[in-house]
Design a protein around this nucleic acid. Structure first.
Length: 483
DNA sequence: TGGGGTTAT
DNA sequence: ATAACCC
């Protein structure tokens, strides 16, 4: 499939053009192409394989667990299994099992509406995410056994780049196995599979790996979910939802335009969120086709070159973003929302609760946070979404004591958080908060400072510039001396 | 709307 | 520190 010229073209490869090349090479029309039954043992496509290190069409799987929180609850308490079950946070049913969905319960439905629709609905409280988080990482770790390149998206979705794994299976494939190669699960739009098309072959192998992943999730963790296999993350994600509970779908390249045009509105395009949708609608853009055909120049002026180019590519089903291994989390946070918090004592109590949970989590993780942040949401009748935050470095003497669980780290941390609080909220004036959140971030693997060694002075992040506070590389944190 | 997460600016 | 995105 490798093009001869095109030396310095950008890595993003047009799926359609890759296809043309693949078809031209793979259709068997070339008179001197070796046949599938070639006695040399090498299947016909081996000479089409892409040289190591060059860009090629990828095989990506998107794995999406079915109603994840509800599944975890049903595993915790099997008596819930055959009942309509909703998971409640505050006055919302954030998710529910399929029994409940059959009876009309929807995600993010008000508890009152849900009970009205479905009086038999069983509700469990899901405000404590601990068990969901733990199960979520078990899933990611299981997938990492297949291939280490796993990117998490929320607690219940993962992308895996299967390209290398597929290449390996392709190399092991015997020519007599090729003719009996079959897809696992659905093919989007029932598009016919062409075993003479190398891209089809690779995606079929991807679909088999996806099936193995779902089997492993079910056998080892007792979880069901969907999977979508395609040539990039956008398409994999879109196609994973086509057949819904506990099924999988592969997208062949010829159907990618059908898939993206199956979206009824650009707001359904992953990567186009609330704000961008509003701005696009203001430009008269509402369908995928509208976005495809809209002037690139004007779009760039309106949204900035970065967003404009990215989302317009998305509208064609193009997405060159890599599957970025998530690894361990970048931050830990705990939040609580409420109708009203209007006194400092009240806030302090809530902050202490959040902090206590966080300290346990951070202790378990082993790494040390070097930054702490306090986030609030103020009451406002109309204004959607507005959070404010203050953050500061955690003093090193506190960081040292974080893992030990022994010394009292609560008191000094609460002091810091309350200073951040008073920096945001004028406690001498009336206030009305509806959310408090504490976040630990800037996590570092402990004790690798090499202090006193020559490395210490040769490592830019450790030497005096970043330690002298005011001359630091980026001065974003509120420093405690400023109070 | 909950209780989380991420990256870019 | 905020704003956008994701679940």
């Amino acid at each position: 499939v490798e093009p001869e010229e095109e030396g310095d073209r950008e890595e993003e490869e047009d799926a359609a053009r890759a296809m043309e090349r693949a078809e031209a090479g793979a259709a068997g029309s070339s008179p001197d192409a070796p046949g599938p039954e070639e006695p040399g043992g090498l299947p016909w496509f081996h000479d089409q394989m892409v040289p190591v290190g060059s860009y090629s069409s990828r095989v990506i799987v998107h794995v999406d667990l079915d109603c994840f929180y509800a599944q975890v609850e049903m595993i915790s308490n099997p008596e819930l299994k055959d009942k309509p079950l909703g998971v409640q946070q505050k006055y919302l049913v954030v998710t529910c099992n399929y029994e409940a969905r059959k009876l009309g319960v929807k995600k993010l439905m008000n508890v009152r509406d849900a009970k009205e629709k479905c009086p038999q609905l069983v509700l469990v409280n899901g405000e404590d995410l601990t068990r969901y988080r733990e199960m979520s990482y078990k899933v990611t770790e299981l997938l990492e056994e297949f291939s280490p390149v796993v990117e998490r998206l929320g607690f219940d979705e993962n992308f895996v780049d299967l390209t290398e794994m597929v290449e390996k299976r392709l190399e092991q494939l015997q020519s007599d196995e090729l003719s009996v190669l079959t897809v696992s699960g659905h093919v989007y739009n029932d598009h016919p599979v062409n075993l003479h098309d190398i891209l089809h072959i690779r995606l079929l192998i991807g679909s088999q790996i996806a099936a193995e992943m779902r089997e492993a999730m079910n056998n080892q963790l007792g979880l069901t979910g969907c999977a979508g296999v395609a040539s990039n993350k956008l398409l994999a994600k879109l196609v994973s939802g086509v057949f819904k509970p506990n099924q999988q779908t592969v997208l062949l390249p010829e159907s990618s335009q059908d898939l993206i045009h199956s979206l009824n509105h650009i707001k359904e395009m992953p990567g186009i969120g609330y704000k961008t949708t509003k701005r696009l609608e203001a430009l008269g853009i509402s369908s995928v086709h509208d976005l495809q055909t809209f002037s690139s120049k004007i779009l760039e002026k309106e949204l900035g070159i970065s967003v404009a180019q990215r989302i317009q590519k998305l509208s064609f089903g193009e997405d060159n973003s890599p599957v970025t291994p998530s690894g361990p989390p970048q931050s830990f946070s705990e939040e609580d929302s409420f109708k009203k918090c209007s006194s400092e004592v009240e806030a302090k109590n809530k902050i202490e609760e959040l902090l206590a949970s966080l300290l346990n989590r951070v202790c378990q993780d082993g790494r040390k946070p070097h930054t702490v942040r306090l986030i609030i949401r103020r009451y406002s009748s109309e204004k959607h979404y507005s959070r404010e935050s203050r953050q500061c470095p955690i003093p090193s003497h506190i960081i040292q004591k974080l893992g030990t669980g022994n010394y009292d780290v609560m008191t000094p941390m609460v002091d810091i958080l309350m200073k951040l609080f008073r920096n945001m909220v004028n406690v001498k004036m009336p206030f009305h908060l509806t959310l408090l959140s504490v976040c630990f971030c800037n996590l570092k693997a402990l004790n690798t400072t090499k202090k006193g060694t020559i490395d210490y002075y040769l490592t830019p992040s450790l030497s005096t510039t970043s330690r002298s506070g005011k001359r630091s590389f980026k001065m974003k944190d509120t420093h405690m001396e400023d109070f």
